[in-house]
Design a protein around this nucleic acid. Structure first.
Lengths: 134, 134
DNA sequence: TTCTTTTCTTGACTCATTCCAGAATATGGG
DNA sequence: CCCATATTCTGGAATGAGTCAAGAAAAGAA
Protein backbone atom coordinates (compact mmCIF):
# COMPACT_ATOMS: atom_id res chain seq x y z
CA UNK A 1 0.00 0.00 0.00
CA UNK A 2 1.15 3.47 0.75
CA UNK A 3 3.72 3.57 3.49
CA UNK A 4 5.27 6.38 1.50
CA UNK A 5 3.54 8.74 3.84
CA UNK A 6 5.81 7.62 6.66
CA UNK A 7 2.91 5.88 8.35
CA UNK A 8 2.99 2.55 10.05
CA UNK A 9 1.13 -0.08 8.13
CA UNK A 10 -1.43 -1.56 10.47
CA UNK A 11 -4.41 -3.73 9.69
CA UNK A 12 -6.96 -1.14 10.79
CA UNK A 13 -5.37 1.56 8.66
CA UNK A 14 -5.25 -0.59 5.58
CA UNK A 15 -8.87 -1.55 6.09
CA UNK A 16 -9.92 2.06 6.62
CA UNK A 17 -8.07 3.24 3.55
CA UNK A 18 -9.61 0.45 1.51
CA UNK A 19 -13.06 1.27 2.82
CA UNK A 20 -12.73 4.93 1.92
CA UNK A 21 -11.64 4.00 -1.59
CA UNK A 22 -14.56 1.57 -1.89
CA UNK A 23 -17.18 3.94 -0.51
CA UNK A 24 -16.57 7.52 -1.60
CA UNK A 25 -18.31 10.17 0.50
CA UNK A 26 -19.14 7.66 3.23
CA UNK A 27 -19.69 8.86 6.76
CA UNK A 28 -17.68 7.56 9.67
CA UNK A 29 -20.29 5.07 10.72
CA UNK A 30 -20.47 3.49 7.28
CA UNK A 31 -16.72 3.23 7.24
CA UNK A 32 -16.71 1.57 10.63
CA UNK A 33 -19.22 -0.97 9.39
CA UNK A 34 -17.28 -1.55 6.17
CA UNK A 35 -14.04 -2.01 8.07
CA UNK A 36 -15.67 -4.51 10.42
CA UNK A 37 -16.60 -6.69 7.48
CA UNK A 38 -12.94 -7.56 7.38
CA UNK A 39 -11.79 -6.94 10.90
CA UNK A 40 -14.77 -7.46 13.18
CA UNK A 41 -12.82 -6.45 16.23
CA UNK A 42 -11.71 -2.93 15.33
CA UNK A 43 -12.75 -0.28 17.77
CA UNK A 44 -14.46 2.86 16.52
CA UNK A 45 -11.60 4.76 18.10
CA UNK A 46 -9.09 3.07 15.83
CA UNK A 47 -11.17 4.09 12.84
CA UNK A 48 -11.39 7.68 14.04
CA UNK A 49 -7.63 7.72 14.66
CA UNK A 50 -6.90 6.22 11.28
CA UNK A 51 -9.14 8.67 9.50
CA UNK A 52 -7.46 11.56 11.27
CA UNK A 53 -4.03 10.23 10.50
CA UNK A 54 -4.84 9.55 6.87
CA UNK A 55 -6.38 12.99 6.57
CA UNK A 56 -3.28 14.60 8.07
CA UNK A 57 -1.11 12.61 5.69
CA UNK A 58 -3.24 13.76 2.77
CA UNK A 59 -4.22 10.26 1.70
CA UNK A 60 -7.84 11.00 2.36
CA UNK A 61 -9.94 14.11 2.45
CA UNK A 62 -12.52 15.00 5.02
CA UNK A 63 -15.61 16.84 3.91
CA UNK A 64 -18.49 18.02 6.02
CA UNK A 65 -21.34 19.86 4.38
CA UNK A 66 -23.53 21.89 6.75
CA UNK A 67 -25.87 19.74 8.76
CA UNK A 68 -24.06 16.55 7.90
CA UNK A 69 -21.65 14.37 9.78
CA UNK A 70 -18.06 14.05 8.62
CA UNK A 71 -17.54 12.20 5.38
CA UNK A 72 -14.37 11.03 3.69
CA UNK A 73 -13.21 10.59 0.14
CA UNK A 74 -10.10 9.26 -1.50
CA UNK A 75 -10.00 11.49 -4.56
CA UNK A 76 -7.43 14.03 -3.55
CA UNK A 77 -5.01 16.52 -4.96
CA UNK A 78 -7.13 17.64 -7.87
CA UNK A 79 -9.09 20.44 -6.26
CA UNK A 80 -12.52 19.19 -7.17
CA UNK A 81 -15.75 20.18 -5.49
CA UNK A 82 -19.09 18.71 -4.51
CA UNK A 83 -22.80 18.85 -5.20
CA UNK A 84 -24.96 17.98 -2.23
CA UNK A 85 -28.62 17.04 -2.41
CA UNK A 86 -30.68 19.06 0.05
CA UNK A 87 -33.19 16.28 0.31
CA UNK A 88 -31.30 13.01 0.61
CA UNK A 89 -27.79 14.22 1.31
CA UNK A 90 -26.22 12.43 -1.64
CA UNK A 91 -22.87 13.85 -2.67
CA UNK A 92 -21.35 13.88 -6.14
CA UNK A 93 -18.02 15.13 -7.40
CA UNK A 94 -17.73 18.17 -9.61
CA UNK A 95 -14.60 19.27 -11.34
CA UNK A 96 -13.46 22.76 -10.63
CA UNK A 97 -15.40 25.07 -12.89
CA UNK A 98 -13.03 27.96 -13.23
CA UNK A 99 -9.78 26.30 -14.19
CA UNK A 100 -6.85 24.67 -12.50
CA UNK A 101 -6.23 26.11 -9.06
CA UNK A 102 -8.65 28.84 -9.62
CA UNK A 103 -11.11 29.67 -7.00
CA UNK A 104 -8.20 30.55 -4.79
CA UNK A 105 -8.74 34.19 -5.62
CA UNK A 106 -11.16 35.95 -3.34
CA UNK A 107 -12.29 39.43 -4.25
CA UNK A 108 -11.09 40.78 -0.93
CA UNK A 109 -9.07 38.49 1.27
CA UNK A 110 -9.19 40.71 4.38
CA UNK A 111 -5.51 40.04 4.86
CA UNK A 112 -6.06 36.32 5.19
CA UNK A 113 -3.41 34.03 3.78
CA UNK A 114 -5.73 31.76 1.82
CA UNK A 115 -4.54 28.30 0.85
CA UNK A 116 -7.70 26.56 -0.25
CA UNK A 117 -11.09 27.32 -1.70
CA UNK A 118 -13.87 24.88 -1.03
CA UNK A 119 -17.01 24.97 -3.11
CA UNK A 120 -20.26 23.23 -2.27
CA UNK A 121 -23.18 23.31 -4.69
CA UNK A 122 -26.58 22.79 -3.10
CA UNK A 123 -29.60 21.47 -4.91
CA UNK A 124 -31.64 18.39 -5.59
CA UNK A 125 -30.30 15.18 -7.03
CA UNK A 126 -32.08 13.72 -10.07
CA UNK A 127 -34.08 11.25 -7.96
CA UNK A 128 -35.28 13.74 -5.36
CA UNK A 129 -35.92 16.29 -8.08
CA UNK A 130 -38.35 14.08 -9.97
CA UNK A 131 -39.85 12.70 -6.78
CA UNK A 132 -40.64 16.20 -5.58
CA UNK A 133 -42.17 17.53 -8.76
CA UNK A 134 -44.51 14.57 -9.12
CA UNK B 1 -39.41 44.44 13.29
CA UNK B 2 -40.04 42.00 10.55
CA UNK B 3 -43.36 40.25 10.91
CA UNK B 4 -43.50 40.42 7.17
CA UNK B 5 -42.31 36.87 7.18
CA UNK B 6 -45.62 35.76 8.68
CA UNK B 7 -43.92 34.98 11.96
CA UNK B 8 -45.28 35.63 15.38
CA UNK B 9 -43.43 38.39 17.11
CA UNK B 10 -42.26 36.97 20.41
CA UNK B 11 -39.72 38.38 22.80
CA UNK B 12 -37.26 35.53 22.30
CA UNK B 13 -37.38 35.86 18.54
CA UNK B 14 -36.82 39.58 18.60
CA UNK B 15 -33.91 39.11 20.96
CA UNK B 16 -32.40 36.36 18.83
CA UNK B 17 -32.73 38.38 15.66
CA UNK B 18 -31.15 41.37 17.37
CA UNK B 19 -28.33 39.23 18.71
CA UNK B 20 -27.56 37.79 15.29
CA UNK B 21 -27.44 41.28 13.83
CA UNK B 22 -25.19 42.43 16.64
CA UNK B 23 -22.81 39.47 16.50
CA UNK B 24 -22.22 38.30 12.95
CA UNK B 25 -20.89 34.74 12.63
CA UNK B 26 -21.65 33.98 16.27
CA UNK B 27 -22.21 30.40 17.34
CA UNK B 28 -25.38 29.30 19.07
CA UNK B 29 -23.89 29.50 22.53
CA UNK B 30 -22.77 33.09 22.05
CA UNK B 31 -26.22 33.96 20.82
CA UNK B 32 -27.82 32.32 23.82
CA UNK B 33 -25.60 34.35 26.12
CA UNK B 34 -26.30 37.55 24.20
CA UNK B 35 -30.03 36.92 24.29
CA UNK B 36 -29.92 36.31 28.03
CA UNK B 37 -28.43 39.72 28.57
CA UNK B 38 -31.90 41.00 27.80
CA UNK B 39 -34.11 38.08 28.69
CA UNK B 40 -32.35 36.08 31.37
CA UNK B 41 -35.03 33.43 31.41
CA UNK B 42 -35.00 32.24 27.81
CA UNK B 43 -34.43 28.55 27.38
CA UNK B 44 -31.79 27.36 24.99
CA UNK B 45 -34.54 25.51 23.21
CA UNK B 46 -36.33 28.76 22.41
CA UNK B 47 -33.12 30.10 20.89
CA UNK B 48 -32.64 26.97 18.81
CA UNK B 49 -36.25 27.13 17.67
CA UNK B 50 -36.01 30.80 16.84
CA UNK B 51 -32.83 30.31 14.87
CA UNK B 52 -34.41 27.51 12.90
CA UNK B 53 -37.53 29.52 12.25
CA UNK B 54 -35.59 32.60 11.24
CA UNK B 55 -33.39 30.49 9.01
CA UNK B 56 -36.41 28.92 7.34
CA UNK B 57 -37.92 32.38 6.86
CA UNK B 58 -34.69 33.57 5.29
CA UNK B 59 -34.10 36.31 7.83
CA UNK B 60 -30.91 34.70 8.97
CA UNK B 61 -28.41 32.40 7.38
CA UNK B 62 -26.85 29.39 9.00
CA UNK B 63 -23.26 28.58 8.16
CA UNK B 64 -21.20 25.72 9.42
CA UNK B 65 -17.63 25.33 8.23
CA UNK B 66 -16.14 21.86 8.67
CA UNK B 67 -15.23 21.14 12.24
CA UNK B 68 -17.16 24.07 13.61
CA UNK B 69 -20.47 24.37 15.37
CA UNK B 70 -23.35 26.14 13.67
CA UNK B 71 -22.99 29.88 13.25
CA UNK B 72 -25.48 32.46 12.09
CA UNK B 73 -25.31 35.70 10.19
CA UNK B 74 -27.80 38.34 9.21
CA UNK B 75 -26.29 39.41 5.91
CA UNK B 76 -28.48 37.59 3.46
CA UNK B 77 -29.62 37.64 -0.11
CA UNK B 78 -26.40 38.88 -1.62
CA UNK B 79 -24.64 35.58 -2.26
CA UNK B 80 -21.47 36.40 -0.42
CA UNK B 81 -18.96 33.89 0.86
CA UNK B 82 -16.59 33.37 3.77
CA UNK B 83 -12.94 33.12 4.72
CA UNK B 84 -12.28 30.92 7.70
CA UNK B 85 -9.08 30.93 9.72
CA UNK B 86 -7.73 27.42 10.16
CA UNK B 87 -6.11 28.42 13.41
CA UNK B 88 -8.59 30.49 15.39
CA UNK B 89 -11.77 29.88 13.46
CA UNK B 90 -12.45 33.54 12.77
CA UNK B 91 -14.82 34.13 9.89
CA UNK B 92 -14.88 37.11 7.55
CA UNK B 93 -17.20 37.96 4.69
CA UNK B 94 -16.03 37.92 1.10
CA UNK B 95 -18.01 39.22 -1.81
CA UNK B 96 -18.56 36.82 -4.60
CA UNK B 97 -15.49 36.82 -6.79
CA UNK B 98 -16.90 35.82 -10.11
CA UNK B 99 -19.80 38.19 -10.53
CA UNK B 100 -23.43 38.39 -9.60
CA UNK B 101 -25.00 34.97 -9.21
CA UNK B 102 -22.04 33.33 -10.70
CA UNK B 103 -20.67 30.33 -9.06
CA UNK B 104 -23.97 28.67 -9.77
CA UNK B 105 -22.47 27.04 -12.81
CA UNK B 106 -20.79 23.75 -12.14
CA UNK B 107 -18.78 22.14 -14.89
CA UNK B 108 -20.88 19.01 -14.70
CA UNK B 109 -23.98 19.07 -12.57
CA UNK B 110 -24.64 15.30 -12.67
CA UNK B 111 -28.29 16.04 -13.28
CA UNK B 112 -28.63 17.91 -10.01
CA UNK B 113 -30.92 20.91 -9.93
CA UNK B 114 -28.49 23.32 -8.28
CA UNK B 115 -29.86 26.38 -6.53
CA UNK B 116 -26.92 27.65 -4.54
CA UNK B 117 -23.17 27.65 -4.56
CA UNK B 118 -21.37 28.04 -1.29
CA UNK B 119 -17.73 28.97 -1.19
CA UNK B 120 -15.45 28.71 1.82
CA UNK B 121 -11.91 30.00 1.64
CA UNK B 122 -9.51 28.43 4.13
CA UNK B 123 -6.37 30.04 5.39
CA UNK B 124 -4.87 32.02 8.22
CA UNK B 125 -6.19 35.31 9.47
CA UNK B 126 -3.73 38.21 9.75
CA UNK B 127 -3.22 37.69 13.48
CA UNK B 128 -2.58 33.96 13.33
CA UNK B 129 -0.49 34.41 10.22
CA UNK B 130 1.97 36.77 11.89
CA UNK B 131 1.87 34.83 15.14
CA UNK B 132 2.85 31.66 13.35
CA UNK B 133 5.67 33.04 11.26
CA UNK B 134 7.30 34.69 14.26
C1' DT C 1 14.63 -11.95 18.74
C1' DT C 2 14.28 -7.88 21.71
C1' DC C 3 13.42 -3.15 22.59
C1' DT C 4 11.12 1.18 21.83
C1' DT C 5 7.57 3.78 20.04
C1' DT C 6 3.38 4.19 17.91
C1' DT C 7 -1.16 2.48 17.57
C1' DC C 8 -5.36 -0.09 19.36
C1' DT C 9 -8.78 -1.49 22.81
C1' DT C 10 -12.02 -0.41 26.19
C1' DG C 11 -14.97 2.36 28.36
C1' DA C 12 -16.16 6.61 30.20
C1' DC C 13 -17.24 11.28 28.95
C1' DT C 14 -18.26 15.90 26.53
C1' DC C 15 -21.20 18.86 24.34
C1' DA C 16 -24.10 20.52 20.47
C1' DT C 17 -28.46 19.57 19.20
C1' DT C 18 -33.00 17.36 19.46
C1' DC C 19 -37.24 15.38 21.65
C1' DC C 20 -41.18 15.70 24.75
C1' DA C 21 -45.07 17.28 27.62
C1' DG C 22 -47.04 20.71 29.81
C1' DA C 23 -47.28 25.92 30.65
C1' DA C 24 -47.31 30.40 28.54
C1' DT C 25 -48.44 33.78 24.98
C1' DA C 26 -49.31 36.08 20.45
C1' DT C 27 -53.07 36.92 17.19
C1' DG C 28 -57.60 37.39 15.29
C1' DG C 29 -62.64 37.43 16.02
C1' DG C 30 -66.34 38.94 18.89
C1' DC D 1 -60.86 45.14 25.29
C1' DC D 2 -61.28 40.12 26.12
C1' DC D 3 -61.31 35.30 24.82
C1' DA D 4 -60.34 31.17 22.06
C1' DT D 5 -56.91 28.63 19.71
C1' DA D 6 -52.85 27.54 17.62
C1' DT D 7 -48.17 28.37 18.06
C1' DT D 8 -44.25 28.99 20.92
C1' DC D 9 -41.56 28.56 25.20
C1' DT D 10 -39.91 26.17 29.50
C1' DG D 11 -37.50 22.59 31.74
C1' DG D 12 -35.49 18.48 31.68
C1' DA D 13 -34.19 14.27 29.69
C1' DA D 14 -32.15 11.96 25.73
C1' DT D 15 -29.34 11.29 21.46
C1' DG D 16 -25.21 10.73 19.06
C1' DA D 17 -20.91 12.20 16.85
C1' DG D 18 -16.65 12.72 18.42
C1' DT D 19 -12.91 12.95 22.16
C1' DC D 20 -10.07 11.61 26.28
C1' DA D 21 -7.20 8.52 28.90
C1' DA D 22 -4.66 4.33 30.51
C1' DG D 23 -3.04 0.14 29.68
C1' DA D 24 -2.40 -3.75 26.08
C1' DA D 25 -0.79 -4.88 21.50
C1' DA D 26 1.91 -4.74 17.59
C1' DA D 27 5.05 -2.40 13.95
C1' DG D 28 9.68 -1.21 12.82
C1' DA D 29 14.66 -0.89 14.02
C1' DA D 30 18.83 -3.00 16.04
Amino acid sequence: MLRDAALRVTRPRVAVLTAVHAHPHADTDSIIRAVRMELPKVSHQAVYDSLHTLTMAGLVRRIQPSGSVARYESRIGDNHHHVVCRSCGTIADVDCAVGEVPCLTASDDHGFRIDEAEVVYWGLCPDCSTAQSS
